[in-house]
Amino acid sequence: MSRSMRCPAAVATAVFCVGIFQGCAEKFPDGPRVPTTPVAGVVLVDGKPAEYLSVSCEPQFERAAEIPGASAFTDKDGKFAISTFEAGDGAPPGKYKLTFMWGQINLLNGQYGGPDKLKGRYRKAASSEHEVTVGDQPVDLGTIELTTKK
């Protein structure tokens, strides 16, 4: 990718992330932040790193509606660090199912979406095989391998 193409993508990513974090601040303006624990890993799709792949933690515990969303985007090497309140801070303690969507960032409006390159295969928490239990120690999920093939 040329240098001129990387800069708009970085700007769009920054704009998108700021929007997500502002949304969390608006939803929980007066309440105390719950503690979070770092959660990180790597995603490979068909054996290769997947850049801009969305990783979401779907809570599987009571009072989940009171917890803000925890999610991340992969970098060019497929690495991600889950964020809840600020970049890479992790997720609140609890059990989660991981969901994945591999879209793209619209450079004009900074929105993430478009067709899912994973064809929706990993979008539903109910059918997710990827689980994580977050406690008070950092969690390394290692390498998560996904496929575009059936």
Rank of each mutant, 00 (worst) to 15 (best):
S2K: 14
R3Y: 14
R6A: 12
R6C: 11
C7I: 15
P8N: 12
P8W: 11
A9S: 15
A10R: 11
A10C: 13
V11Y: 13
A12E: 02
T13A: 15
T13D: 09
A14W: 10
V15C: 07
F16V: 05
C17A: 14
C17P: 00
C17V: 13
V18I: 14
G19R: 11
G19M: 09
G23E: 10
C24N: 13
C24A: 14
E26G: 06
K27W: 15
K27L: 15
K27H: 13
P29Y: 08
P29Q: 00
G31M: 13
G31F: 12
P35D: 15
P35K: 13
T36A: 04
P38R: 06
P38I: 11
V39M: 03
A40G: 07
A40N: 06
G41R: 04
V42R: 06
V43P: 05
L44E: 06
G47H: 00
P49F: 02
P49N: 10
A50F: 04
A50W: 03
E51M: 01
E51D: 09
E51F: 03
E51Q: 03
E51W: 00
Y52W: 03
V55M: 08
V55A: 09
V55F: 12
E58D: 06
Q60H: 07
F61C: 09
F61L: 12
R63M: 13
A64Q: 09
A65Q: 03
A65I: 02
A65N: 06
A65C: 09
E66L: 12
I67G: 00
P68Q: 10
P68W: 07
S71A: 09
A72G: 14
A72C: 10
A72K: 05
F73L: 10
F73E: 05
T74V: 07
D75A: 01
K76V: 01
G78W: 06
F80M: 07
I82M: 02
I82Y: 05
S83E: 08
S83I: 09
T84R: 07
F85Y: 14
A87N: 06
A87W: 08
D89G: 02
D89K: 02
D89T: 12
D89M: 08
G90N: 00
A91G: 02
P92S: 10
P92K: 07
P93D: 08
Y96I: 08
M101K: 00
M101G: 14
W102K: 10
G103W: 04
L107C: 02
L107S: 11
L108D: 09
L108N: 13
N109V: 04
G110M: 01
Y112G: 03
G114S: 05
G114I: 03
K117E: 03
L118N: 09
R121T: 10
R121V: 07
R123S: 09
R123D: 00
R123K: 08
K124A: 13
A126I: 05
S128N: 11
S128L: 08
E129S: 15
H130E: 09
E131S: 10
V134C: 13
G135E: 08
D136A: 05
Q137H: 08
V139G: 02
V139K: 04
V139T: 04
V139M: 00
V139H: 03
D140S: 09
D140P: 04
D140V: 04
D140K: 00
I144N: 00
I144T: 07
I144D: 01
E145H: 06
T147K: 00
T147M: 01
K149V: 12
K150R: 08
